[in-house]
Simulated scan of single mutants.
Amino acid sequence: MNPADHQNESIGCLAICGVGLIGGSIARAARSRGVVSEVIGIGKNQARLQKAVEQGVIDRGSTEPESAAAQADLIIICTPVDLIASQVAQMLPHMRDSATITDAGSVKGEIVRELQAEGIDASQYVPGHPLAGSDKTGFEFADPDLFEKATIVLTPTAETADIHTRRVRTFWQALGGNVLTMQPEEHDSVLAMTSHLPHLVAAALAAAVQEDHLRLASSGFRDSTRIAAGDPELWTSIFRQNAAATLAAAREFQEKLTHLITAIEQDNADELKALLAEGKCRRDAWREQRLRLES
């Protein structure tokens, strides 16, 4: 199926639980591409939902998740990761048999384990994670092109029905995403290194600089600490939900940092240069991969 075909597969009603940057961007992307007929925003703050309606992000808002779930063909949960499992469990019993539920959380294993521990039939649930975002928050910054050529990871379990996985894959492809699948545990291990560790390091680096030194901080500080501006509450939940994998990634980073420190202490220019070259090589390889994906 080519990308143009995806745009002809309309979803009647899309419900988004958590109309922030990601949820708002999904809504704008789906509406602008004609992928959905209606978007319901689910949240706790009616005033915020009404503002999202007024700004054209969603068609209507609801503070009643069960009622919205009963009307939706596809539900996407875009709330902090420590809330997702309970929200899936809350809405599943009220969904039509043909409806699908997925999420945009950056941790997958713990959500799956929580649902399995509760003995919930989650055959309609497709764990997902769009690798896209910003340090900004709120639907005011929603971008309809946020997922264009972005990597979207789906981690269906043995319990997930294939029809629902196909539906979520088709939806993300219609929004311009490149979809791949993997196991929840593999996702969490890789993302700990490529996403969660960078935020941990950026936060530590930003916190280590004294405030009266900031007047001398320029592009290097800006580029290496940008993601430290992310929502602390959101990232606290991510680190707690993916603690084991994040700690493993942090220890690998700590080992690399120790090697660099030792090379400087010993004035070992050859070792220092080799370590820096290794970092440059990996960064250059990442850039080449991104250029290929975006071409």
Rank of each mutant, 00 (worst) to 15 (best):
Q71E: 15
A72D: 01
D73M: 07
L74F: 14
L74V: 15
I75W: 09
I76R: 07
I77T: 06
C78S: 15
T79E: 06
P80Y: 12
P80K: 09
V81P: 04
V81R: 03
D82V: 12
D82A: 15
I84L: 10
I84R: 07
I84Y: 11
A85F: 02
Q87G: 00
Q87H: 08
V88M: 08
V88F: 10
Q90W: 03
Q90G: 00
L92W: 06
L92T: 08
P93M: 12
H94Y: 14
H94L: 02
M95R: 04
M95S: 06
M95G: 07
D97F: 00
D97V: 03
D97P: 01
D97I: 00
D97A: 13
S98R: 13
S98W: 09
A99I: 09
A99R: 08
T100W: 13
T100C: 13
T100Y: 12
T102C: 10
T102R: 04
T102E: 02
G105T: 05
V107I: 14
V107F: 00
K108Y: 12
E110I: 14
E110C: 11
I111R: 11
V112A: 04
V112C: 09
R113W: 04
R113V: 01
E114C: 10
L115G: 06
Q116D: 14
A117L: 12
E118V: 02
E118W: 15
G119R: 08
G119D: 11
G119E: 13
